[in-house]
Amino acid sequence: MSRADYRGGVLEEIFDRVGVDACVHAVDVDTGRDVGIRPDEQVVIASVFKILVVLEFARQAVAGQLDPTERAVVRAADRLGGWGTAGCADDVELSLRDLAYFTMSVSDNTAADLLLRRVGPDVLPLLAAELGLPRTRVMGGPRQVLESMFDDVGARDAAEFAHMFAALPDERVRALRVFDPEHTTSSTAREITRLLALIWRDEAGPPAACAMVRDLMARQMFWTRLLSGFPPQVRVAAKTGTLPGLHIEAGVAEYPDGGRYAIAVFARAKRLTARRIDVDLAMGEAARAAVDQLRRL
Score class of each variant (00 low, 15 high):
1 M>S: 15
5 D>I: 12
8 G>C: 07
13 E>F: 13
14 I>S: 01
17 R>N: 14
22 A>W: 00
23 C>E: 11
24 V>S: 02
30 D>Y: 03
43 V>M: 07
43 V>L: 08
45 I>C: 05
55 L>Y: 09
56 E>S: 10
59 R>G: 02
59 R>K: 11
63 A>H: 03
65 Q>H: 11
68 P>C: 05
73 V>H: 05
76 A>H: 15
81 G>E: 09
87 G>N: 11
93 E>C: 10
93 E>F: 08
99 L>C: 06
107 S>Q: 05
108 D>C: 02
111 A>P: 03
114 L>D: 06
128 A>M: 08
130 E>V: 07
134 P>S: 10
134 P>C: 09
136 T>C: 07
136 T>I: 06
137 R>T: 13
138 V>R: 02
139 M>S: 13
139 M>V: 15
144 Q>H: 14
144 Q>T: 14
144 Q>K: 13
151 D>T: 15
155 A>F: 10
162 A>D: 14
163 H>A: 13
171 E>D: 12
182 E>Q: 14
184 T>F: 06
189 A>L: 10
199 I>W: 01
200 W>E: 07
201 R>T: 11
207 P>E: 10
208 A>H: 11
210 C>A: 02
217 M>G: 00
219 R>E: 07
224 T>H: 13
224 T>E: 15
225 R>Y: 03
226 L>V: 04
232 P>Y: 12
234 V>F: 09
237 A>D: 01
238 A>Q: 10
239 K>G: 00
242 T>K: 08
244 P>I: 06
250 A>G: 04
251 G>M: 02
258 G>A: 08
259 G>S: 11
260 R>F: 00
262 A>Q: 03
267 A>S: 04
268 R>W: 07
268 R>A: 09
269 A>T: 02
270 K>F: 10
273 T>K: 10
275 R>I: 13
279 V>H: 04
279 V>Y: 03
284 G>Q: 07
285 E>L: 07
286 A>C: 02
287 A>M: 05
290 A>L: 04
291 V>H: 06
293 Q>S: 10
293 Q>K: 12
296 R>G: 15
